[in-house]
Design a protein around this nucleic acid. Structure first.
Length: 426
RNA sequence: GUGGCGGUAGCUCAAAGGUAGAGUCCCGGAUUGUGAUUCCGGUUGUUGGGGGUUCGAGUCCCCUCCGCCACCCCA
């Protein structure tokens, strides 16, 4: 038995080289959200288990077998690490009456937890950004959400992300369809696999997107949900399509797209990439007009999406747009009695002026300090030794351009340094 | 959760049952306080972990952990 402790399965460290990509991604996404008028909201990672059971649905895979749930022995509460954040966000909106003065556009981000078997693009702790438009009933906001995603993909440099949309109607329409679908599936029971049989009564719509060929044959002859939609549902869908068309946004209608969470109605959509293997969905969402009432709030229409950070960042890697790290403007090398303290005052003065300065710490010969200066990627080395201290000066040595080393007075070092650096970067 | 493939130095990978290696990285040196190129030298390690077979196991067997792929599911 090893005594070495490692990270929990499916929960990954994001090391500095990779974190650089995350920071570039996060900066882009958050600026983009702001441009569409979405405001940040932050919910806890832990919620009462009941919230997810009621919001997501008892017979979904998430609730049945993927939630990190436990009983808090200190007070007997049943708690769960959030598997998604829409339920939390709606809970918060109800709890704080956020819609009292009208609709809201909100975004969140952070880790989510699902106990699945890990795979590339699928982790037990994964990260999402989500945008939710609360209180807007019309297809215009559905279209806004979809079109804004397309803008983000462009900005992240991603091509080959395609859009699939569908409508799953109103709950009553879906109930009538569901009854007929069950009848149809029952009539062909012997062709169904174990999974389809299990879902036949609990969640028959999930049978539609089965990958089993025999099941698909049964599905092909099944009634279509589209034929059960009333005038209002059809108008909503037509409205969405008209807006997407007007925006020049290409899409495919996938009648089998039903999505895994129970709270959706009318519009559902997914953005999918073929470059990620089996975990190709990069963003998914839809309308959930019933959720507010479902978890005990005043009814309110709502629509939104969540996108997977790991998957999008994987696509950014694929697209090859490497983020540029901020390299130090100078690496400060010091040698001699009292040189560190002297150098530190110089470094602080430069940092106050906004420069990134790395000061050598610890042991190291002059030569090895210079090697570190080079390896740091810094534009320049600042050198402090006995000579410089005697003259109250600093030596300035360019590292990336052929240019002479010069001495600078410590007084007004920030201005002198700024001017010299600007000349170097010309 | 089911099935398949894999795990050797920080990284990328060799070693066909017989002394664990290469490249890279890192560290030190090449005449006093000057980096990157070059040259010389050095550490890379319980071969993921545990057990078994064998005179001998990185190599064969079992268990386990982790990763990857597919199913499943979704972000």
């Amino acid at each position: 038995m090893s005594t070495k402790i490692q990270a929990v399965r499916g929960m990954n460290d994001i090391l500095p080289d990779e974190a650089q990509w995350w920071q570039a991604y996060e900066a882009t996404v958050e600026a983009w959200l702001a441009r569409y008028g979405y405001r940040n909201i932050r919910m806890p990672l832990v919620e009462h288990t009941q919230l997810f059971r009621r919001a997501i649905g008892e017979v979904t895979d998430i609730v049945e077998k993927e939630m990190y749930s436990w009983r808090d022995e200190l007070n007997g509460e049943d708690l769960t690490l959030r598997p998604e954040a829409t339920a939390s966000l709606v809970r918060a909106a109800i709890e704080h009456n956020l819609l009292y003065d009208g609709p809201k556009r909100l975004w969140y981000s952070g880790p989510m937890y699902r106990h699945e078997r890990p795979q590339k693009g699928r982790y037990r702790q994964f990260h999402q950004y989500g945008a939710e438009a609360l209180g807007f009933p019309g297809p215009d906001v559905d279209a806004e959400l979809i079109v804004m995603c397309a803008a983000l993909w462009r900005e992240l440099g991603l091509t080959d992300v395609r859009l699939e949309i569908n409508t799953i109607g109103a709950p009553e329409e879906r109930a009538r369809y569901r009854a007929d679908l069950i009848r149809h599936l029952e009539a062909h029971q012997d062709a169904l696999d174990a999974d389809a049989k299990r879902r036949l009564h609990s969640n028959p719509l999930r049978v539609l997107d089965s990958k089993n060929a025999a099941v698909q044959a049964v599905v092909a002859s099944a009634p279509s949900l589209m034929d059960y939609l009333g005038e209002a549902s059809l108008a909503h869908f037509d409205g969405l399509r008209a807006l997407l068309d007007a925006a020049g946004q290409a899409y495919v209608i996938n009648p089998k797209l039903v999505r895994g969470l129970d709270y959706y109605n009318l519009t559902v959509f997914e953005w999918i990439s073929d470059r990620l293997g089996a975990q190709g969905t990069v963003c998914g969402g839809g309308r959930y007009d019933g959720l507010f009432a479902q978890i005990g709030g005043k009814p309110a229409p709502a629509t939104g999406f969540a996108m997977g950070s790991e998957r999008l960042i994987a696509l950014m890697h694929d697209a090859g747009r490497a983020p540029r790290a901020r390299l130090p403007d100078a690496y400060l090398v010091a040698q001699g009695e009292g040189s560190y303290a002297y150098g530190f005052r110089v470094a602080e003065a430069l940092r106050e002026a906004g420069f990134a300065i790395v000061q050598h710490a610890g042991e190291g010969s002059f030569k090895s300090q210079m090697k570190k200066a080079d390896a740091s990627g810094a534009w320049t080395a600042l050198i402090v030794g006995d000579d410089e201290m005697r003259a109250d000066e600093i030596s300035f040595k360019p590292l990336r351009r052929e240019a002479p080393q010069v001495r600078m007075a410590r007084a007004r070092i920030a201005e002198t340094f700024a001017a010299a650096l600007a000349r170097l970067r010309d």
